[in-house]
């Protein structure tokens, strides 16, 4: 029988070997799909532990990046068990790095933490034009739009994107969060976003607050 608490703890502690050992043994025991889902949830809870340790200052960004890798590894091991059936989602996010900016580390960290928290994330990628955000928002009708950027020029691109969503008449159908090195309260006001953060774990908490 799978010890879910131990699994959560091992993910939280970023103990890769232990996590893989537990999951390999679990998969070998031919568990049911329902049991598989429980294992996925336990791993995702481990990611929440990682987020807490990051906010406490025990973990740093490097640990978040590795945690994302570990979670991807864990879920791919569990894929054959859980099949294609998807579990209920907490909410959905359209995410992308705005036009002109080529950075993706922060965006990717936010994505893996948001997915672990139960969001369905539609990641557009880097250097995304305003129209790409508009088209995706129209297509998937998300709860939240997340815009990422590292350069200060990205702040203008974020403003363009919010203005574009306004012109398309869909600004008020979503909450908008901006993230990355240059975002500040002043920048957030200037852009017209609903929230800003330089901390992926905090960004996930803000997003959770919006879909409760």
């Amino acid at each position: 029988m799978l010890d879910l608490k131990t699994l959560t703890q091992a993910v939280g502690d970023l103990e890769e070997e232990k996590v893989l050992e537990i999951l390999n043994d679990f998969v070998a025991s031919k568990p049911s799909e329902d049991e598989g889902q429980k294992a996925v949830s336990a791993c995702q809870e481990g990611m929440a532990v990682v987020g807490e340790l990051f906010e406490k200052g025990d973990y740093f960004v490097g640990d978040l990046i590795f945690a994302g890798e570990l979670l991807t590894e864990a879920i791919s091991l569990l894929k054959p068990v859980i099949g294609t059936g998807s579990s209920a989602k907490l909410g959905s996010i359209v995410l992308g790095t705005v036009h002109g900016d080529l950075h993706d580390i922060g965006k990717n960290i936010f994505r893996s933490m948001a997915e672990a928290a139960g969001f369905e994330v539609h990641d557009l990628g880097i250097d995304q034009p305003v129209q790409a955000f508009i088209d995706k928002v129209k297509a998937v009708k998300p709860d939240i739009v997340g815009m990422s950027g590292v350069l200060t020029l990205a702040l203008e691109a974020m403003k363009d994107t919010v203005d574009g969503l306004k012109e398309a008449g869909i600004r008020d159908s979503v909450k908008i969060i901006i993230g990355g090195n240059p975002v500040t309260k002043e920048a957030c006001d200037h852009i017209g976003a609903d929230a800003f953060t330089t901390n992926a774990a905090e960004g996930v908490k803000i997003s959770q607050g919006w879909v409760k």
Binding site: H99, G100, D101, L102, H103, D104, I105, D127, V150, L151, L153
Partner: peptide
Amino acid sequence: YTSHGEMETIQIATG
């Protein structure tokens, strides 16, 4: 290190 035309500034492409 690349000069993305639109930004007129040098940036590092990650990944």
